[in-house]
């Protein structure tokens, strides 16, 4: 096998919080011993899912280089991004592009839409002459299902959220990256318009060989477009594997609860039982040594507190869950 496109090894990120006068600094582990591999080819959509505070945005920021690892490595095409030279970093930024959650905040309201594209072309020196630049922009807009001239002359406020988000995809596409980090790209767009953006992702994957790191809390869109899925719980992987396999048959108790809680669009299939959340303090005070889901887990036993559970194989195709229930040598309870 050729070298992977992106290889994250034992990534750990610890934030220091507090430390004002009279208070002690506290450490918050946002990501713990995280491993992820995205193959070079074929291009895939890898979903990172989890609730707020699970570390999914921290992961995006790490991959995009906005923040640095406390320990571990992020290796892109064989090079550790922590040890890149200036030129390599510029290359990396061209190869790894981002699409963010808020399609309103990323535009400067004073400029027309074309400004977004002009800047990209200038900064990455993509064009030989003006007409070639035009053609590239046109091709980029066509790839996301928009038509050129009239949209380029508009101001951001004249576009809908869905259109703005597609323009961001077109911008990322223009640079011909290998990987697009999409952090909640559809969560602020109307449900009925999400399909158009997800469709662009599929098209870029299949036709242009661009891989995606799709970060979301919405399992249903991940189910529709994702290839691999990683479900995080408080900074660690709870379960990972092929998306359909994980969502059709979740193994980790947290993932089971998560999948079960997604409201089904069927009035005859209602939530069958009331669930209770344990007190916030209990949840946060989870013993860092053992399984972090222990305080909420209906199946937990003392064994769970000895050490964080590693990933155990639960099904074919690298479907793994980090739960002692799946420890191979049958542990008697």
């Amino acid at each position: 096998m050729s070298q992977p496109l992106l290889d994250i090894r034992n990534a750990t990120k610890v934030y220091q919080v507090g430390g004002g006068i009279g208070s002690k600094k506290k450490e918050v582990v946002a990501l713990q011993n995280f491993n992820l591999t995205i193959a070079d080819r074929p291009a895939t959509i890898t979903t990172i899912a989890g609730e707020s505070g699970s570390g999914k945005t921290t992961l995006a920021n790490l991959v995009l280089g906005f923040t640095h690892l406390s320990s571990g490595q992020i290796v892109f095409q064989g090079k550790d991004i922590g040890e890149m030279t200036h030129k390599e970093i510029m290359d990396y930024r061209q190869n790894v592009q981002a699409v963010f959650q808020d399609p309103f905040g990323v535009y400067n309201p004073f400029y027309r839409v074309e400004h977004v594209f002009d800047l990209v072309i200038k900064n990455f020196k993509l064009h030989k002459n003006d007409s070639e630049a035009r053609d590239r922009i046109e091709a980029g807009l066509n790839a996301v299902g928009l038509r050129g001239e009239d949209i380029l002359r508009k101001y951001p406020h004249q576009l809908s959220g869905g259109q703005r988000q597609r323009i961001m995809m077109a911008r990322a596409y223009l640079i011909k990256p290998k990987l697009i980090v999409a952090d909640e790209p559809v969560s602020m767009v109307d449900a009925s318009l999400r399909a158009a953006i997800l469709d662009v992702m599929l098209k870029l994957r299949d036709e242009e060989n661009i891989s995606f790191l799709y970060i979301t809390h919405d399992l249903s869109t991940a189910y529709q477009v994702g290839d691999q899925i990683y479900i995080l719980y408080q900074g660690s992987i709870a379960e990972r594997g092929p998306t359909t396999s994980v969502i059709d048959k979740p193994h980790h108790p947290y993932v089971q609860l998560l999948v079960d809680s997604v409201p089904q669009p069927d009035p005859d299939d209602k939530w069958d039982k009331d669930i209770e959340l344990p007190d916030e303090e209990v949840m946060r005070a989870a013993d860092a040594k053992g399984c972090r889901f222990y305080p909420r887990c209906p199946k937990g036993w003392e064994h769970c507190l000895t050490a964080a559970p590693p990933l155990y194989k639960v099904a074919e195709n690298h479907h793994e869950a980090s739960c002692y229930l799946y420890e191979p040598k049958a542990v008697s309870r």
Partner: peptide, 21 residues
Amino acid sequence: QVLIESIPSLKEKKPLKITEG
């Protein structure tokens, strides 16, 4: 009908239904 068809499901993978605003 458009609204109902565009709901992403967790039960079956279906082709995306694209609509304008």
